[in-house]
Nucleic acid binder design. Structure first.
Lengths: 149, 149
DNA sequence: GTCGATGCAAAAAATTTGCAAGTAA
DNA sequence: TTACTTGCAAATTTTTTGCATCGAC
């Protein structure tokens, strides 16, 4: 992972937010992992390479990234928010299936092709009807896993 | 709203949980409202008719109802969890469209018919593949509302 | 009669805010 | 240079726990 400019640098141009070292380090950490990271997970991961980081900065950065549409924020029911990169070269668009009882979460990425036309249609209609500029979506299935049935 | 047995009473039979006054009152409050209620909203609403209620009971009840699949728990980004009845005679199956910037949430229920076959297919495949007993789902679109664009 | 459920007070955690100092643009 | 950012400490808020009492089945 060399140190060239990243795909996200363009997203920071002219949006009022500055692309600082801590923010880059947080984006790198999110890129490096394909887990559902909590703010503290990110804090600990980034501190290994950038020990000066404060937890407050992680929260503030995640909030900005969420508003920019670069990360998703999830509540998987374990008392802390979890974050995932929403786009980027290494990101596979996927959805979640979770157990209502134990909270286990499975990612799946089948059907993304099949979903496409339906979701585009919904997106287009909702955009017009409610005057939204829609740019992402999430599908979540709930149930009981094999151990909890 | 007369006092006969409710549709949910059957759901409590033989599941180990008891159908108590506070639990019924909380379910009534959820039925009465079509908003995205926080635990405190529910607490305040129920106390008008059942002043003895404690906030702790609201949290504990919502947790149980979530596990039973009777309510959905959402994080709409305002720092508190929000709850909705997931099923029942008065419930219209719907999804959400929310603004990444101001957090405004719009419910929509178009497309539920069109979604049906696709979601059933996904559900069936995921059920087999991951050995889950799936019984509900949620779709969430994200974007910028007219005021925030 | 049992064993789960409740409410209160206290505790635990996650997240946010104030502020002086640092730094991208 | 000018705002935007940062990290720390302190504060805020939501949610959870311990425990004696109560009540559904």
């Amino acid at each position: 992972m060399p140190g060239g400019p990243r795909w996200w640098s363009g997203r920071f141009r002219g949006c009022g937010y500055r692309l600082t070292i801590p923010r880059q380090a947080i984006l790198e950490a999110l890129t490096r992992s394909d887990e559902h990271l909590s703010a503290e997970d990110i804090y600990l991961a980034v501190r290994k390479v950038y020990p000066g980081l404060g937890l407050t900065t992680v929260y503030r950065t995640l909030d900005i990234l969420k508003q920019m549409g670069l990360v998703f924020k999830f509540d998987f029911g374990d008392g802390r928010s979890r974050y995932e990169l929403a786009r980027g070269p290494n990101v596979t668009h996927h959805h979640h299936l979770s157990c209502r009882s134990c909270g286990r979460v499975v990612d799946y990425s089948e059907f993304v092709e099949k979903e496409k036309s339906l979701l585009e249609e919904i997106e287009s209609t909702l955009s017009k009807k409610h005057n939204f500029k829609i740019n992402s979506h999430q599908i979540h299935f709930y149930g009981l896993c094999s151990s909890c049935q």
